[in-house]
């Protein structure tokens, strides 16, 4: 590596960050994701137009100063709906990614550390990988939606259902990666040293193993985030995710398809937001993988 000398004295996070910045698209993606997050979180406070207010007189409008992205068939402002919808989309992606990461890491860690459980847990992972996910997601959501809605209210009911269902069906890759990494780590000398110094399994996992498998977990987190957002929007697009009055980008796109001859902007804005967000998350994952790869130093 050419610039090794100024970096060599810095700590590892600094080091990774410096390398991450050199991946231009990943760096750009990070800024875009930050921008989208800020817009969806703080935007509705500045753009105070309520996305649920009906204004039939102003229906099917093109872009204007009052409605920068136009309005829908009931005269609701699309820009406001995009920001609120984006908040839900990102939230679903984040929560589902987090849950599936925790689940996957636990399964992978337990399988690798406790030998007797390795076989059963990996067979379980294989079974989950052989299940047809999209059909099952659709079936489960269809069958559970109404009862969860009555139990938790129309909005949080769907939210909980979608997040749980996505995370339960997407932990397998993380589990496999973590198991592989931990199995390789277990053979290393420093683990042997820790064991001979009398470290218990809990200390071993938290102090020695987990910090060393963090980088693959981070990378699979970004991929999980992107695919969770995509899955949620696909469900909403098929009419089985979020309802129209609590839309996400996928639902906005789905609702827009009925009017695409009249106002094509209604499908383009949500689709563009969705695609660019997923694209930047995927690039961030790419950049992280490159930046965290220890082999990059020795080249």
């Amino acid at each position: 590596m050419r610039k090794a000398s100024p970096l060599a004295h810095r700590s590892r996070p600094h080091h990774v960050w410096a390398r991450f910045r050199r991946h231009k698209m990943a760096y750009l993606g990070l800024w875009f994701l930050l921008l989208v997050t800020i817009l969806t979180l703080l935007g509705p406070m500045i753009w105070t137009l309520d996305p649920t207010t009906l204004d039939i007189a102003a229906k099917h409008q093109g872009p204007s100063l009052r409605h920068p992205m136009g309005t829908d068939q009931l005269g609701r402002d699309l820009f406001a709906a995009m920001m609120i919808g984006g908040r839900t989309s990102l939230m679903v992606g984040f929560m589902a990614m987090f849950l599936s990461l925790v689940l996957g890491t636990c399964v992978g860690m337990i399988a690798a550390v406790f030998k007797p459980l390795d076989g059963p847990l990996m067979r379980l992972t294989d079974l989950f990988l052989a299940l047809p996910m999209l059909p099952l997601l659709l079936v489960v959501i269809m069958l559970w939606r109404d009862s969860l809605r009555t139990a938790f209210g129309p909005e949080s009911g769907v939210f909980i259902l979608v997040v749980c269902v996505i995370s339960i069906t997407s932990w397998m890759q993380t589990a496999r990666i973590v198991r592989g990494e931990v199995l390789a780590l277990k053979e290393r000398e420093f683990i042997l040293a820790a064991i001979s110094l009398g470290a218990g399994p809990r200390h071993l996992i938290w102090q020695h193993i987990l910090p060393n498998v963090l980088s693959p977990i981070f990378v699979s987190a970004t991929l999980g985030f992107a695919s969770a957002i995509l899955t949620e929007s696909a469900l909403s697009f098929l009419g089985l995710g979020f309802p129209s009055d609590f839309p996400t980008w996928g639902r906005l796109l789905f609702d827009g398809t009925n009017y695409m001859t009249l106002t094509p902007a209604r499908v383009i804005w949500p689709g563009l937001a969705l695609s660019l967000t997923v694209l930047s998350v995927n690039y961030i994952g790419d950049g992280l993988r490159d930046a965290m790869d220890p082999r990059a130093d020795t080249q």
Binding site: M25, A226, L230, S233, A234, F237, G250, L253, G256, T257, M260, T261, P264, V267, I268, G271, L272, L274, S275, V278, L279, N282, Y283, D286
Partner: peptide, 21 residues
């Protein structure tokens, strides 16, 4: 990267908007 980031339901709808509508 674009190919697997952009969902098929958006590319599909976009193509319909451009080539059909």
């Amino acid at each position: 990267m674009v190919g697997f980031s952009v969902p098929t339901f958006f590319t599909g709808v976009l193509m319909v908007v451009v080539f059909s509508v």
